[in-house]
Amino acid sequence: MSDHVLVINAGSSSLKYSLVDSASGEAAATGLVEQIGEERSHHVHHGPKGEFNDEQPIANHEAALEAAVRAFETEGPALADVDIVAVGHRVVHGGDRFAAPALVDDELIAAVTDLVPLAPLHNPANLEGIEVARRLLPDLPHVAVFDTAFHQTLPPYAYTYAVPTQWKEQYGIRRYGFHGTSHSFVSAQAARLLGRKPSELNMIVLHLGNGCSAAAIRGGESVDTSMGLTPLEGLVMGTRSGDLDPAIHGLLARVAGRSAEETDHSLNSESGLKGLTGANDFREVSRRRAAGDERAQLAFDIYCQRIKKYIGAYYAVLGTVDAIVFTAGVGQHSAEVRAAAVDGLETLGIRLDPGRNARSELTVSTDDSPVAVLVIPTNEEWQIAREALTVVRR
């Protein structure tokens, strides 16, 4: 029997789960419980019997996980019939305390709780998911896999902000980076595709989904990344602004009477593509752009220009680049974004093949391009499963 890991990703009002074969990456079942705590919650489970949908009130994450366990029993596969070796939990922020996955125990719970001020929107939900799963599945080892861990290889000059030193010492203010699970998986897959060892390659990975981040990876290790203290910094995203002048907070406080909390909420939830067009879904922005919407066109141009800016910056950081890798929903499926992001960079050895790009092939660069341009689907659940397995097999 294959070693399976139950991967859990708990959000503030959602619970996503996947039963993953750690060897092949295939999911025996996946599911999502949304709108937890509302009058009408939605639960979808994809298993051997097909898609199962249910709508009823689900009060909290414990009830959500109980619903997931019931779905496994009725829709399959029954958890008792599967060789589950661990439960892997996605945790957004591990600060500078966790550079690798770790077995969940009371000490880890306390450490992640201490990090809540750095990720108030994410870590509390992640903690709730862990605590609920430990109660309902007490006989299995639980492993925390941190979004920030892959970026703990950043050198001090890349993670240190030019602010008073005591801010870092007292409040932990520094660059941490996120999407590390995706960057780790995709960069390893890119090396396999190129037939090279990760230690031999320099690459720029662009994770472009609702959240977006770039990473400069030298020899398999992250040496710079666009997200910072929080996931707000860097590229333009679905609802996040990305890079901006930090004086905006002070200006809005003076001229509009806005609190720091109000501005922070707007920059995280009402900005990015949503702020520019009213829609955070890139597919909708693309439809409007195709119909001649000028705001959608401007949003597209801003979005792609920011990506190009980071490609250039990270090319300079790395010195030489062997591959540029696009991943996640937009990165995998938007040929237009890929084309715009590398347009004009031929002098850097980046040559796109229009036909391959239009078909979203794994390699979308020309055969003679010194820099390979790749399109690789991410699989964070498989990466979490593999990392969880390494912990329990030590």
Rank of each mutant, 00 (worst) to 15 (best):
R306Q: 07
V44Q: 08
L267Y: 12
R386A: 12
A67Q: 05
E55D: 11
G312F: 01
V7T: 04
G88F: 07
I204W: 07
G47A: 07
K16F: 01
P124V: 09
H151C: 10
V186F: 10
Y303R: 11
L154C: 02
T153F: 04
P370H: 11
R240F: 08
M227R: 04
G278E: 11
G195Q: 09
G228T: 09
I109H: 07
P164Y: 03
H265Y: 15
V132P: 00
T148L: 05
S199R: 14
H249P: 12
R283L: 08
D368T: 09
H265L: 13
T230R: 12
Q152C: 00
T239G: 06
R306Y: 04
A323C: 01
V112F: 00
C304N: 07
T347L: 13
D353Y: 06
S199Y: 06
G292E: 07
E66R: 14
L389C: 09
A341E: 05
E221Y: 11
L137K: 12
E294Y: 03
L32N: 05
G331D: 03
A67P: 11
Y161H: 12
V325A: 08
F52I: 03
T160M: 10
S213W: 13
G349S: 13
R338T: 00
R258K: 14
A291E: 11
N53V: 13
S14C: 10
F98H: 05
G47P: 00
V375D: 08
A247D: 14
H265A: 14
L206A: 09
P120M: 05
I311H: 04
R386G: 10
N9Q: 09
A119K: 04
H42I: 10
T327I: 10
C304Y: 05
S41V: 10
